[in-house]
Design a protein around this nucleic acid. Structure first.
Length: 135
DNA sequence: GTTCTAACA
DNA sequence: TGTTAGGA
């Protein structure tokens, strides 16, 4: 699979990735700190992202927008990994289905757990989100 | 001009 | 998360 090599080739600097993902450099660096992504480095300090990195950042972004926290995203990534390791073919479809299932599970788990929400950004309130689940 | 790390009126 | 300081 030569295509994988291409997708994993570190080519994109911060500025490009911020435009591609609509994320701030601060957010991207923070996600890296949390172990969600691990972009390559140039001379030892500047980050270089691959197209796969960008894809991953977009997934992370969508998950966070759906109400997951960092821990939730980690679990989603773990799920995706397990699926990839298990089913070597049809991974795309399998991953997506399982992810949707896990997403619901994680959301409910987090909401039941309590206020893990932060002060700053809060589009979704407890009531708005919990009504999608049967209690 | 860009990006990096660390830190917080 | 934003923003700023101080360097590379």
């Amino acid at each position: 699979m030569r295509d994988d090599i291409r997708r994993n080739m570190p080519l994109l600097p911060m500025r490009i990735v911020t435009k591609l993902t609509e994320l701030t450099p601060r957010q991207i660096r923070y996600y890296e700190q949390q172990g969600l992504v691990n972009p390559a480095r140039t001379d030892g300090r500047q980050r270089l992202f691959s197209f796969n990195d960008v894809d991953l950042l977009l997934k992370i972004k969508s998950w966070l927008e759906k109400g997951l926290n960092i821990a939730g995203v980690r679990q989603m990534l773990g799920e995706a990994q397990q699926v990839l390791e298990t089913k070597k073919d049809q991974t795309k479809k399998a991953t997506k289905e399982l992810s949707e299932r896990e997403l619901r599970k994680l959301l409910k788990r987090q909401l039941t757990a309590g206020p893990t929400r932060r002060v700053g950004e809060t589009h979704l309130t407890y009531g708005e989100l919990t009504r999608f689940f049967r209690h």
